[in-house]
């Protein structure tokens, strides 16, 4: 890592994708705001450019006039404001994460905003860990909602969960073909489909590629879900539906994104590390990942690769 000595150099290197760990109960906008504020503060603390000089031509106009080079007070950061402000740093997210979800969040800084757009349209899969609890149903399907129903869950076993979960996954295979944008009766579709899974053509409907129960300790359980186009409320309803199909009720206690495309948890920066030094390192790592996997940004076929 190069030592950053100059604010201008630092600003020019701040272009790219960063991968941060979004805590729950902090909105994506707040995350953006915190990161941009930290960046601005650290850029302003770095040594900036020298103050500009001002040419002043003084004296009566009917005699030889004097040309002077005087310091320009208007250029002082105390007068014209800090050199770097919020508006100087663009920041956009690749895929939104709900307020109560936590986990991997990709943000584009400055020129990286283009990358986030490409990533979003390429629709890489995201992996989620969805924690749920049996026995209580809420009106929002999440822990913060009002309890509307209680039911016993003694009859639920691991085998029963696995059966229902496998059924959900199979049902989504059909939507996957419908959303791929291919004609269902053509030879091309058959050829592509025989090779593996397909990407959805638009971002309208959620598609689940894989879902399995990874932890079961009644009343708590954890599902691992690989999907595209999902959103936090959809995952909550999924837990609720699971409860209903198991002849009990369930609500979601936490949603955690553990992977987006090739960006995984070990890469994600924790809240205490949202500083320029760490962010620049992280940006380098993300750039490396994007270079190694070209189809992450511009996939060539309808097949699901990541």
């Amino acid at each position: 890592m190069v030592q950053i000595r100059n604010a201008a150099v630092a600003y020019k290197t701040l272009n790219g994708l960063i991968c941060v760990y979004k805590p729950s109960c902090v909105s994506v906008r707040q995350v953006q705001h915190i990161i941009v504020t930290h960046l601005c503060r650290e850029l302003n603390d770095l040594p900036g450019r020298p103050l500009e000089k001002r040419v002043e031509i003084v004296g009566p106009t009917n005699a030889p006039m004097e040309v002077k080079l005087v310091p320009n007070y208007a250029d002082d950061p105390l007068v014209c404001g800090p050199r770097y402000i919020h508006e100087d740093i663009r920041c956009s997210w690749a895929t939104h994460l709900g307020l109560f979800s936590s986990g991997v969040l990709l943000l584009g800084i400055n020129d990286g905003t283009k990358l986030t757009y490409l990533l979003n349209t390429a629709r890489p899969t995201r992996a989620f860990k969805v924690h749920g609890q049996f026995g209580k149903g809420t009106d929002t399907y999440f822990w913060n909602g009002k309890t509307v129903e209680r039911a016993s869950f003694g009859h639920v076993t691991r085998a029963k969960i696995d059966r229902v979960v496998a059924h959900i996954q199979a049902a989504h295979q059909k939507t996957m073909y419908e959303l791929s944008g291919l004609h269902m009766d053509s030879q091309t579709t058959y050829d592509i489909a025989s090779e593996g899974l397909l990407r959805p053509a638009n971002s309208k409907l959620p598609v689940i590629y894989g879902i399995k129960c990874v932890h079961f300790d009644p009343p708590n359980f954890t599902l691992e879900i690989q999907s595209v186009n999902e959103y936090d409320k959809y995952l909550w309803t999924l837990v609720h539906d699971l409860g209903v199909q198991l002849k009990t009720v369930a609500h979601c206690t936490a949603v955690q994104c553990i992977r987006q495309g090739k960006f995984t948890l070990p890469l994600a920066l924790l809240r205490k590390h949202w500083q320029m030094e760490h962010l620049l390192n992280n940006m380098d790592q993300c750039r490396q990942i994007l270079e190694d996997n070209e189809n992450l940004l511009r996939p060539k076929s309808a097949q699901l690769t990541i």
């Binding site: 001002r54 320009n72 007070y73 208007a74 002082d76 950061p77 105390l78 007068v79 014209c80 404001g81 800090p82």
Partner: peptide
Amino acid sequence: AYINSSQSLQNLLHLNINLS
């Protein structure tokens, strides 16, 4: 806009007052 022609504002700046 005024600081280069105003001695008072310049003096305030020398006192480290953040005019912005």
